[in-house]
């Protein structure tokens, strides 16, 4: 019978990504309820040292597939390796990060393992010894409680939602041969074009400063960049702003962009179309700055400011700088 709570640890440029610690902490919590062990799979090149770090967050055992063919990440190589470890060990639950890479990997694993996957979950729990995963659907217009009829029960967890908790466990390394033949791989990464360093992706940001049609043009975003700089935030955009070509597609928040749940979302000049509200209303705190006091965004805001954003935002930047000094 399937047993154990597993995670796939994600790493980039030689370091584990934060979502891996969120996965480990969450897996520990679930395993303590089912009385199981937590195991992690790490697939990469020169990644053995990461095992000890995972042990700090409650991982008992770390399955490591170490091979030059695993860097950089490709779907075919990594999915084959993780599927091998899962088939050989039969875990009951498998958690993956709902990052770009995690979502790609998890979906391929569904095909390889004939399993069920709940994507981008905001909560996971054990009921009657089984995983129940809670996830937004329709970009957050409703939620679904997902139950599973196949092993492993798979869930990808939205980054930045699950707390990181330290629990010292062994993190014992078990090396395995994934049996992946580098010559048989059909995809390869031929180039990595990095964006300006320090840019935070809206999907992973703790704070998002977002602008809509009210920014009046691409140059309007300068004041949002400044506020974001002070707060260590990402700059987001509404569909209207992206469709107008003011901001890149990767910054779009909403039903046809990214669905986000940061600690703080500051909406500037965004009226609040339903498809935008769906994508951000699970943020912990929402500030809306808009001239129109009837804008629907105010219904979702914890703090609303009815005023000219071109005056309020620079003043807010100054105030935040003072408070955070």
């Amino acid at each position: 019978m399937a047993k154990g709570v597993w995670i796939v640890a994600e790493h980039r440029d030689g370091a584990l990504r934060k979502v891996s610690f969120e996965l480990a902490s969450t897996a520990r919590k679930l395993a303590d309820q089912t009385g199981d062990e937590v195991a992690a799979v790490v697939v990469g090149s020169g990644v053995e040292a990461m095992a000890a770090e995972l042990g700090k967050y409650g991982v008992d055992k770390v399955f490591v597939a170490d091979n030059a063919a695993f860097e950089p990440y490709t779907t075919d190589a990594h999915a084959a390796a993780v599927a091998k470890a899962v088939k050989d060990n039969d875990p009951a639950i498998l958690l993956v990060g709902a990052s770009a890479q995690g979502k790609d990997l998890a979906a391929a694993l569904v095909g390889k393992l004939a399993a069920g996957l709940a994507t981008d979950c905001t909560d996971v729990k054990i009921e009657d010894g089984k995983l129940v995963a809670v996830r937004p659907m329709y970009a957050g217009k409703c939620f679904g409680e997902v139950v599973f009829n196949a092993a492993p029960a798979m869930a990808s967890l939205r980054p930045n939602v699950f707390p990181i908790v330290e629990t010292a466990k062994a993190g014992a390394v078990v090396k395995f041969d994934a049996g992946v033949d580098a010559g048989a791989l059909k995809t390869k990464v031929v180039e990595v074009q990095k964006e300006a360093s320090g840019k935070i992706d809206v999907a992973e940001a703790n704070i998002i400063v977002s602008g809509g049609r009210g920014m009046k043009g691409p140059e309007g975003y300068g004041i949002l960049e400044e506020l974001a700089g002070v707060l260590g935030a990402a700059v987001g955009a509404s569909r209207a702003a992206v469709d107008a070509g003011w901001r890149p597609q990767s910054d779009q928040v909403g039903q046809t962009g990214k669905v986000v749940s940061p600690n703080l979302y500051i909406a500037c000049g965004i009226s609040g179309a339903i498809q935008h509200l769906a994508g951000m209303s699970s943020s912990k705190y929402i500030v809306a700055i808009n001239k129109d006091n009837e804008a629907p965004i105010f219904a979702k805001a914890d703090y609303g400011v009815v005023d000219d954003l071109f005056k309020v935002v620079p003043a807010l930047t100054t105030e935040c700088k003072k408070l955070m000094a």
Partner: peptide
């Protein structure tokens, strides 16, 4: 292999304040 056992409306946000 997986199914939505229950659909739930999104949690209501508490009323905010206008500054």
């Amino acid at each position: 292999k997986a199914k939505v056992g229950k659909f739930i409306p999104p949690p209501a946000r508490p009323p905010g304040k206008i500054i």
